[in-house]
Computed example of a mutant assay.
Amino acid sequence: MCGIIGLHLRDPELHPMLGRLLDDMLCGVSERGPDSVGVAVYGDDRRNPGGQAAVSVLRAPGDLDRSVAALLPGTPDVTASRAGDTTVLTAPVTGETLAAAVTAAAPEALVVGRGDDVVVYKGAGHPQDLARTYGLREVSGWQGLAHTRMATESAINPEGCHPYSVGPDQCLVHNGSFSNHATIRRELERRGVTFDSENDTEVGARFVAACLADGDDLEKALLRLGETFDGFYTLLVTTADGFAVVRDEIACKPAVIAEHPRWVAMASEFRALAELPGIGEARIFEPDPGKVYTWQR
């Protein structure tokens, strides 16, 4: 069982409140997944300064910032901050360049997020404890999502947490199961796509990333996913300018969307949305089976 929350802020006046709103929403789905939590936040200049990229890393050695800086052109300043199991490196280079330097400097480390606007945190433990570890209530920005997990088919560890962030500023969280993921994994591997785990969610995330890299917009990428993947699922996908929700054609996994002039939110349960500002004026609905819902920044 899993819990999903996501919040896309349309009103810049709400940006300083992003972390507090996400933390309140997280309380509403913690019981759905008390084993671990992953969080992604967009637009926090204190964690990912303008003109720089951020890379989130698990299993990072203590001197990673120095060894990465030595591999970058011009040896720029690399800043490292640690929150629980996650180390975030920032530097004035592209996310791809920074991620490649991390992999070269520390092959044992695992890159779990990269981009110009997003920071990803992952860890095992109770969601509310980890939210404090990440300093979630202090976050500002324009978009965020989180995923709580009760592991049923794989180990309880940070590596198994969602979101899966396998493309620049792209994140995907998933409640459900893809039954034909092994077949699709082999097809992607033939195209040169590499994987970090055996998780079916990673297959979905890399499929979406490949579609976006091919030039699809977010809606088309998720329509292609629905045509390709078998199984049951609710997905929330975010990018540097988009926020999208889709369920499979049976729609047995829960999802609720609330749309307000100042924000759009999605959660596995309504109680996660109940304290959002102006919820009484929001349009609240259950997303239709097989339909892709998208919003742009």
Rank of each mutant, 00 (worst) to 15 (best):
3 G>D: 05
8 H>T: 01
9 L>D: 04
15 H>E: 13
15 H>C: 07
21 L>R: 08
26 L>V: 10
29 V>W: 06
33 G>L: 08
38 G>P: 08
40 A>L: 10
41 V>M: 02
48 N>V: 15
59 R>M: 11
59 R>I: 00
69 A>M: 01
70 A>Q: 10
76 P>S: 10
82 R>V: 14
84 G>R: 03
85 D>S: 14
87 T>V: 15
94 T>D: 12
95 G>F: 08
97 T>C: 10
100 A>I: 01
105 A>M: 09
109 A>I: 09
110 L>R: 15
116 D>G: 15
117 D>L: 15
120 V>H: 10
121 Y>W: 15
132 R>Q: 14
133 T>V: 15
133 T>Q: 11
133 T>E: 14
134 Y>D: 02
141 G>P: 10
147 H>R: 06
149 R>Q: 07
150 M>H: 13
150 M>Y: 12
157 N>A: 13
161 C>E: 06
161 C>I: 07
164 Y>L: 12
172 L>Y: 04
175 N>T: 04
182 A>W: 05
186 R>T: 14
188 L>Q: 10
188 L>R: 05
194 T>W: 00
196 D>R: 13
196 D>W: 00
197 S>A: 03
203 V>H: 02
203 V>E: 01
204 G>N: 01
206 R>F: 03
207 F>R: 02
208 V>W: 04
209 A>Y: 04
212 L>S: 04
213 A>T: 13
215 G>A: 07
218 L>S: 06
225 L>R: 07
226 G>I: 01
226 G>A: 11
227 E>A: 13
229 F>P: 07
230 D>H: 13
231 G>T: 11
237 V>L: 08
238 T>W: 01
239 T>K: 07
243 F>H: 09
245 V>Y: 03
247 R>W: 03
250 I>M: 13
252 C>I: 15
254 P>I: 09
256 V>M: 09
258 A>R: 01
259 E>T: 12
259 E>M: 03
268 S>H: 09
275 E>N: 15
280 G>Q: 12
281 E>Q: 14
281 E>I: 01
282 A>R: 06
283 R>W: 04
285 F>K: 00
287 P>N: 01
291 K>A: 14
297 R>D: 11
